Amino acid sequence: LLPSFEIGAWTEDDVYCWVQQLVRKGDSSAEMSVYASLFKENNITGKRLLLLEEEDLKDMGIVSKGHIIHFKSAIEKLTHDYIN
């Protein structure tokens, strides 16, 4: 489970856990499981996660359009939940 809904306070480890949970919950393929490490390697914290754009995801090595859409949708939901 994630430490809190205060996404802005999430550490790199918290984001890593979130990506792992996202991959487990989704209908995503096994190749998506490597993405948790990509987020950690790129020092993505909660604040940075909320700022990620499609180009950032591509720069991190996420090239599948479907996977990018999956992440963007999940990040938008997080942003919405965080604001409300």
Rank of each mutant, 00 (worst) to 15 (best):
I69C: 10
R48Y: 00
I62K: 00
N43P: 02
K72H: 08
I62E: 09
T11Q: 09
H70F: 15
V15I: 03
K58W: 09
F71Q: 01
H80L: 10
N43Q: 12
K58H: 15
W10V: 01
S28F: 15
L57D: 01
A74P: 05
F5T: 15
K58L: 05
G8C: 10
A9N: 13
Q21W: 05
D59V: 13
K65T: 11
V19Y: 02
I7R: 02
D56W: 03
N43G: 13
S73K: 15
E41Y: 04
D81W: 06
E6V: 04
H67Y: 06
G66D: 15
T11I: 02
Q21F: 09
F39A: 01
E55Y: 02
I69W: 08
G8E: 14
D14T: 05
P3N: 15
L49I: 02
K40T: 00
E41L: 07
L22K: 04
D13T: 04
G8Y: 09
K77N: 08
G8L: 13
L1Y: 14
A30G: 11
V23H: 13
V19M: 00
I75Y: 03
D27M: 11
A74Q: 09
N42D: 12
C17K: 07
G26A: 07
K72C: 06
D59F: 07
F39K: 08
Y35S: 03
H80F: 11
I75G: 02
K65G: 04
S37K: 15
I7A: 05
S64P: 05
E6S: 09
F5E: 15
K77R: 09
C17I: 10
G46A: 00
S28L: 14
G8Q: 15
V23S: 11
R24S: 13
E76A: 10
N43S: 09
A74S: 06
R48M: 05
R48Q: 10
E6P: 09
G46V: 01
K65R: 11
K25F: 08
L52R: 03
L51N: 11
M60K: 03
D27I: 14
I75C: 00
M32T: 05
F39P: 02
W10P: 07
E54Q: 07
E53S: 10
H80K: 13
S4D: 13
P3H: 12
E54S: 04
I44R: 00
D14L: 01
